[in-house]
Design a protein around this nucleic acid. Structure first.
Lengths: 315, 315
DNA sequence: GGCAAAATGAAAGACGTCTATCAAAAATGA
DNA sequence: TCATTTTTGATAGACGTCTTTCATTTTGCC
């Protein structure tokens, strides 16, 4: 190794791969459930790799019931014999997956956390946004929309026990603390649109002074239903929510909401694949840059994702 | 070719490159002048490729006086004999560069327009943002910050003869037309901070009702100087400007301005290189997705760019 | 010291493509 | 028809690495 360093030798990965007809086998394990965001992630993963295998990358997608650590553990055990080079999983904090992950890594399979982080020692890296920053951004935009005037903001989350939701609310609160805005009692909607709808209706009646809503979690279809049925004789609250999905895009276009903060899953998938390849090649890893979430308003919505457009992005 | 199609044969670029020790030679031709944005672009280009040439990509950067079509033409003529595979130039509309570009393309050198577009037939593609959208985004954010109340917005550009500036103002006007906001007479600052400063001071005195400023061009150091010296006894106008640069970042952090719309030159350079490689390999080009500019506020500023972090991003 | 087992070393072949070389075949001209 | 040029075809070698094979050396043990 010292000679290698002295000579400045760098292994030619292309030649090495050519010599053994290397195929990279990766798997994305993605929660399945009511959350449309993960459907979007699946679509993206399905679209990154040309189906003809030109790029020698084979990607498999497994879906596992959301929040079900036992099912995830079982899936990981099965995958550990599937001759994979690496997997990406959406991190959850549950001791039941520790051993399966350790087994995989012992077998030389790289394990990355995506979207939601895991304890550092458990995996080879994390690709995702900083949720505290995302929440602070939401707070900043809400503050901006009030232009210094007072207001009252209603936060909605799935559950504060979910680390990402808690972090978003944390960043949000810290940002609002420096403003003239007050915060209404938080709603926990369990990421279910029906619960979000019910609780939100009640909250808006109970507290007519609300000037803005920040939804840090999922279940926004319920939120949008409420907004669509608000009386039109007075201005609706300003609304910020997360993830660009069919219903949030529609709501933006219709003017029912004002801002969508998107974690750019395309970028996350792209970087995850790049990292998985680095790990598979035992190449030095690029220093991790944080993914900055995108801010969307009506005017800068990107074109709808045409899966064909993603082809070749794994190259 | 029909046999190729029938058999579904796809050329293995890695093997082909290996066999002939292929080196990709690209050149970025970037304007030189007072504009700090292009210095940033240069830094990014300089940082994408590892200096040891591991990735077989050699990137050269040429700087040419801004707005000087004759100088650009001369540079292109020289480059056409430099054994390049492709170049990226910042598009300008001037017939004097048509022939040099045609010559380059005749020699098999791919020519891409970056940041600013050129007539379609002239080059092999364009990588950059949609400036009409960017202007509309600025307008949308300013409208949002007024929350339905009336206001008066002052637009500043370098010159309306510059296509990108004109497009931004166009998108901006169209968006504001649907709001309660009025537009003050436009300032042309020629992208020079001294002129921007002088004109802006005068405009703010002449029109005390101004509630927001949209700077679509460069020379924002002058704008920021004015903001820093405004009387603090009443709220300053809301400010939106373009490009994340040292002084605009500082101004955001200090609360002198509210929003920066950034065209994400890292992404532009990355995609330009990817396209240049496709063209050099005569591979099918990925369908062009538009680059959506990023919206930055104080809370979601990305970490300062450490050049080392970009290493390997050309892979 | 002698023999088997283990470790080390060297060399050949393969991966998929391109270039260069040379022979064979076809086309050209007298 | 023959000599010459041009076209076509086939083959070898190279690119940088990994794996496999086989020969050689070293080690361990009685």
């Amino acid at each position: 190794m010292r000679a290698v360093a002295d000579l400045g030798y760098v292994r030619n990965v292309a030649a090495a791969n050519l010599s053994q007809r290397r195929v990279y086998r990766f798997c994305f394990v993605i929660p399945e459930g009511t959350n449309a965001f993960f459907d979007r992630v699946c679509k993206i993963v399905g679209a990154v790799s040309p189906p003809d295998g030109t790029d020698r990358v084979q990607i498999r997608v497994e879906r596992v019931a959301a929040f079900d650590a036992a099912a995830l553990a079982k899936c990981l055990i099965e995958l550990s014999d599937a001759d994979l080079d690496g997997i990406a999983i959406v991190g959850i904090n549950d001791a039941r997956i520790d051993t399966p992950i350790a087994i995989m890594r012992d077998k030389g399979i790289a394990v990355l956390a995506m979207i939601s982080d895991m304890p550092e020692s458990l995996c080879d890296g994390y690709i995702g946004i900083n949720n505290t920053t995302a929440g602070a951004t939401a707070g900043g935009l809400i503050a901006l929309s009030h232009g210094g005037r007072p207001g009252r903001v209603l936060p909605i989350v799935g559950a504060l026990t979910a680390r990402d939701h808690a972090e978003r609310i944390d960043g949000f609160r810290k940002t609002l603390a420096a403003t003239a805005l007050t915060i209404a009692p938080l709603i926990e909607g369990r990421d279910r649109h029906d619960l979000v709808e019910t609780h939100l209706r009640a909250a808006l009646v109970a507290d007519p002074a609300i000037t803005a809503i920040y939804s840090a979690g999922a279940g926004n279809a319920g939120l949008i239903r409420v907004l669509a049925t608000l009386p039109s004789d007075r201005p609706r609250p300003m609304v910020v929510l997360h993830e660009l999905l069919p219903h949030s895009r529609d709501a933006l276009e219709q003017g029912l909401i004002d801002i969508v903060i998107d974690q750019r899953p395309e970028e996350e998938v792209r970087r995850t694949l790049a990292l998985l390849r680095c790990l598979a090649d035992r190449r030095p890893l690029p220093a991790a840059r944080q993914i900055v979430p995108a801010i969307y308003i009506r005017q800068n919505l990107p074109a709808e994702v045409d899966p064909a457009l993603l082809e070749g992005s794994a190259a």
